[in-house]
Amino acid sequence: MAKIRVYTTPACPFCKMAKNFLKDAGVEFEDIDVSKDPDAAEEMVRKSGKMLIPQIEIGDTIIVGFDEEAIKRELGIDV
């Protein structure tokens, strides 16, 4: 399965929802807190061109915001 990275900030409710969704789906992911890692924040913005949290990177695709349907489509799962 493609590598999954979730770019988050600590207080963001949509980040929690996204992480809970992936956990419930049994999908492993790397949680990157961009408030502690400015380089990762920069990399995320460079890749997606968007300054919005959360972003979910699945392989070569970045999903901007928590969009459950888009994540499901990208992972080919139905939960």
Binding site: T9, A11, C12, V34, S35, M51, I53, P54, V64
Partner: peptide, 15 residues
């Protein structure tokens, strides 16, 4: 999403 945001709680740390 390129600097304009409606959620400081979410996006604040990017700035």
């Amino acid at each position: 999403e390129r600097g304009v945001t409606y959620c400081a709680t979410c996006d604040g740390p990017l700035f």
